[in-house]
Nucleic acid binder design. Structure first.
Lengths: 150, 150
DNA sequence: CTCAGAACGTGGACGCGATCGACCTGAGCC
DNA sequence: GGCTCAGGTCGATCGCGTCCACGTTCTGAG
């Protein structure tokens, strides 16, 4: 993980569809060399995937909510986690310090669907309570920050 | 926005580096037709960008925190927003219903940097108070959910 | 009904990019 | 020195991206 790898990661965080030839020009190596480096970054787990960032409203996911989960005192964390994992509406899941064990980001089409999701969460074994906050608007999301060498 | 556009969006959400030729095979059109459709999806704002999803620890961003912002009663929301926008550590920003006007997702390298960030936020004009919760681990993030036609 | 035009597709052509193999170079080590 | 290995360049080949000319379908006007 040298400075060139870091540049490649930064370039691909900004635009995942850059060609190897273009990456090569940017970092001053040949295309095969870049191909090899990017392959190693993928194999080593540094680059996990390439995603198109899509306007959620355009695909019928206009409602964003953040949901905190308080666990039952006796509940098993892994069971709760697996139950949550099975709900496709939950786009992100963080395990937190604090009273709320998990913080979830969910996206659904309508408030009615959000209601159903919350009911399902409250019915889940190991979940003592939930706290939901609805996002009125998403100002930005997953903005890549400039990297400092490590 | 027909069923084919939806398939293209779904394919690119799963893997943003698919070639037009491959997309064409998947949806049963020719490569130029796919090229044209994807271009329109980009121009129309449905596809906003293509991003490499990178393991944060690998690039020195091992600390994730979620921060709620309570606004001053007299403060201007836009000013606060612009101040937040200027902080690169804030990867996501949601405008919320509830006491806390904003919910931020921040990533930094160390707890010390998080401390500095929180101090800077509290010092920001228009910010009455902040509430920070540190994520112990990220179970998953930005998982694309299967699309239903709209 | 017929016609014009728009929207959207296909197929061909051509240049560039992806990718493979052969070879080069410098560092580390006996 | 000479071996080995990591990591690069170069050159060749093949497939992809992209432009363009043309065909088809649909729609609305006369």
């Amino acid at each position: 993980m040298d400075a060139i790898d870091l540049s490649l990661v930064e370039l691909l965080r900004g635009n995942a569809r850059l060609s190897y030839a273009e990456l090569a020009r940017q970092v001053g190596l040949s295309a095969p060399a870049v191909h090899e480096r990017v392959g190693k970054l993928e194999a080593g787990g540094v680059i996990r995937s390439y995603r198109a960032d899509v306007e959620p409203e355009a695909i019928g996911l206009g409602v964003t909510a953040l949901i905190g989960i308080v666990q039952d005192s006796g509940g098993d964390t892994d069971d709760v986690l697996e139950a949550i994992r099975g709900m496709p509406e939950i786009e992100s899941c963080y395990f937190m310090a604090g009273v709320e064990s998990f913080l979830l980001k969910a996206r659904v089409g309508t408030i009615a669907e959000l209601e159903q999701l919350i009911l399902r969460l409250n019915r889940t074994a190991g979940v003592a309570s939930t706290r939901t906050a609805v996002a009125l608007s998403t100002k930005w999301e997953n903005r890549p920050q400039p990297l400092s060498p490590s």
